[in-house]
Design a binder for these strands. Structure first.
Length: 606
RNA sequence: CGGGGCGUAGCGUAGUGGCUAGCGCGCCUGCUUUGGGAGCAGGAGACCGCGGGUUCGAGUCCCGCCGCCCCGACCA
């Protein structure tokens, strides 16, 4: 069956929808692929749904190819399993919750670790049942604080999630590597320009974790990469810390009056004016900036946390949050300062005052104090003296103060050295398309998933968890491929291979085009035929917005025995003799080099 | 949750407290047109986000709510 534009359920828009900012959202709506149903929730129209299913199919093929088995869980789930792992509480307002008629608690699944774990627990009891690799392609629900950019971040979305179950770490590593290779094939087939980066495991728990980021201006994730191949999400970047410095010869710390210097800028200016150094001027990098946060644990307990970073850097709140998860950090408010008189805003430092102020568990104020990894033993700092208008010079880490630990919370900058010595980092943005985790035993332990090993001993199963954003991939492909005229699909995911435009008014053109469409269809090529009684300009514009990779124009040159074949992506136009048309198109669609050769496939007799 | 912008027909929009809420696109009917978003004529389509209030009179002013978009917070 060829699809006729006169019958296709689609309406293209001549103007941009006012609420769409990013290109993928704009074009998918304008081309009639999706419609907004509610904030962050979209309906899929025939064209959009075809793309979604094609991407699903690619994912399905590659998952099957590594021996994963497809299952399908409900989206509507009972509370109990999520209660057992603590996520009923941990997910907080991000979960859609509902009650049944008996007042029982349910949720719309945001992810399915619990359900998979319980199913495997149900059915598996021996090491002989492992390894096991299950996946599903499911609609997920998360009540995002801010859905944005159409289907790039929705509250309802389609995700492929899979879970591996192994008896030991070696098995988990193998399952992880298999998934990684499958993901490489998936994202290659989707045509993404992507990066595989080290990631934080976040709320999922677990250890090793990598993200697949489609490189895109509109991506929400910032990542770094070095010429030598280091790549990491900015949240997961490890700072290249200098070696400890011997401090036997370091001068003693001394407190100086530094009136009106509550900021690094004012402090550096005053230091250069009143305490100039011979070798080089003071800079922000010589100062230790101590920023205080109020940290709230999941159980509701609150405590201040001081973070010490070189004064020329800001604390990156996303990096800080990633380190503290599941606890949450907020900047210290005026009320918080009022409640903690030992913390003198603008002059906070690790130095002990006679009154016992200062940072760290050992100080009287017992404010937990974590520092940037650059604050190594022996490094000398100009920092707050915990008194208004006073700073301490030559305060040496490891001699004059001992932080409670280090934290990766300072901002990462382009040009910073990679931690593995592979060169300076560059920053780029990406869309998170896939994430692979070695979960370990967190869920298996919480839910009691154990099997008997060869010695008849009960052992806890180790798990991996792996996700691909399927609906997000639709938008991400568009972000990477659309142009100023509209969508521009890679052939693997295009809703149709060939868009036939009937540009002439005479019935012969329509008839010939329909016949060509029928023959292509019989050869297994998906065709949409624009048979509408519309002006050619409308049809050309619609073909370009809709974005099929090959556009065939059947018009007045048909009288001269010619049609036109256009490549949507390059804009290239080729005149082809009608007798060669079928063969030419088969070659184009199948990516064969010898274009123009007719009869590559014998058309089926009508 | 904080800051900013904004809700008028399917889409994009105009609208000094004052007549029957206007325009473009799209849609319907007829005729003409057909290689780059056609022309003419006629038509359908709007509880102006919702609820209060001020006023002789509210799309317009005031209060409250809801919703959308952007930035931030947040987010496998």
């Amino acid at each position: 069956m060829i699809t006729r534009m006169s019958e296709l359920f689609v309406r293209t828009l001549r103007e941009d929808p006012a609420d769409a900012e990013v290109p993928s959202h704009r074009w998918l709506v304008r081309a009639g692929y999706i419609r907004r149903a509610a904030p962050g929730i979209y309906s899929w129209l025939p064209l959009g749904y075809r793309v979604l299913r094609k991407i699903e199919q690619i994912v399905r093929q590659e998952m099957d190819a590594i021996g994963a088995q497809e299952v399908h869980f409900p989206a509507l789930l009972p509370r109990e399993p999520y209660e057992a792992t603590g996520r009923w509480t941990e997910y907080g307002p991000n979960i859609f919750r509902l009650k049944d008629r008996k007042d029982g608690d349910y949720l719309l699944g945001p992810t399915h670790e619990e359900m998979f774990t319980l199913l495997v627990k149900d059915l598996c009891s021996s090491y002989k049942d492992l390894p096991l690799n299950l996946y599903q392609i499911q609609t997920k629900y998360r009540d995002e604080a801010r859905p944005r950019a159409g289907i790039l971040r929705g509250r309802e979305f389609v995700m492929k999630d899979s879970y591996s179950f192994d008896i030991d770490d070696a098995g988990l590593q193998k399952a992880y590597d298999l998934h990684r290779s499958a993901y490489v094939r998936i994202f290659d087939r989707l045509g993404f320009d992507y990066a595989i980066v080290q990631a934080m495991s976040g709320a999922m728990g677990g250890s090793a974790s990598e993200e697949f980021l489609a490189i895109a201006e509109n991506g929400e994730d910032t990542f770094v990469r070095s010429p030598g191949g280091y790549a990491a999400n900015v949240e997961a970047v490890h700072t290249a810390a200098p070696e400890p410095i011997p401090f036997e010869d370091a001068p003693a710390a001394h407190v100086e009056d530094t009136p009106d210097t509550p900021t690094i800028e004012t402090l550096v200016a005053l230091a250069n004016d009143r305490f100039p150094r011979e070798d080089r001027p003071w800079t922000g990098a010589d100062t230790l900036k101590n920023v205080v946060f109020m940290v709230t644990e999941p159980d509701g307990t609150r405590a201040p946390l001081a973070v010490g970073v070189p004064g020329d850097r800001e604390v990156d709140l996303k990096r800080l949050a990633a380190q503290l998860e599941p606890a949450e950090a907020e900047v210290f408010t005026e009320e918080d300062f009022a409640a903690n008189p030992g913390l003198v805003k603008g002059y906070i430092g690790p130095a002990r005052t006679p009154g016992g102020a200062g940072l760290g568990e050992e100080s009287a104020s017992t404010v937990r104090f974590l520092v940037d990894p650059r604050v190594v033993s022996g490094s000398r700092w100009l920092t707050g003296a915990n008194e208004p208008g006073r700073h301490v010079f030559d305060l040496v880490a490891g001699r004059d103060f001992t932080p409670d630990g280090t934290i990766e919370a300072a901002e990462v900058r382009a040009g910073d050295p990679a931690p593995d010595g592979s060169g300076p980092l560059e920053l780029a943005r990406g869309i998170e398309m896939g994430h692979i985790f070695q979960l370990g035993r967190k869920y298996a332990e919480a839910l009691g998933l154990k099997v008997l090993d060869q010695n008849g001993k009960l052992v806890t199963v180790t798990m991996g968890s792996y996700g691909v954003g399927v609906s997000r991939a639709v938008a991400a492909v568009v972000e990477g491929t659309c142009d100023e005229k509209g969508l521009c699909w890679p052939r693997e995911v295009a809703p149709f291979d060939v868009h036939v435009v009937v540009a002439g008014k005479d019935a012969a053109a329509l008839e010939w085009a329909a016949d060509l469409g029928r023959k292509l269809d019989e050869a297994g090529i998906a065709v949409v035929l624009d048979d509408r009684k519309a002006s050619p300009g409308v049809k050309f514009a619609d073909a370009e917005i809709m974005g099929m990779p090959t556009i065939v124009v059947v018009g007045r040159s048909l009288a001269d025995g010619l049609i036109e074949v256009r490549d949507r992506a390059s804009g290239e136009r080729t005149e082809v003799a009608v007798d060669d048309a079928l063969g030419h198109l088969l070659a184009v669609v199948h990516g064969m080099p010898d274009l123009g050769e007719p009869d590559l496939v014998e058309p089926v007799a009508e």
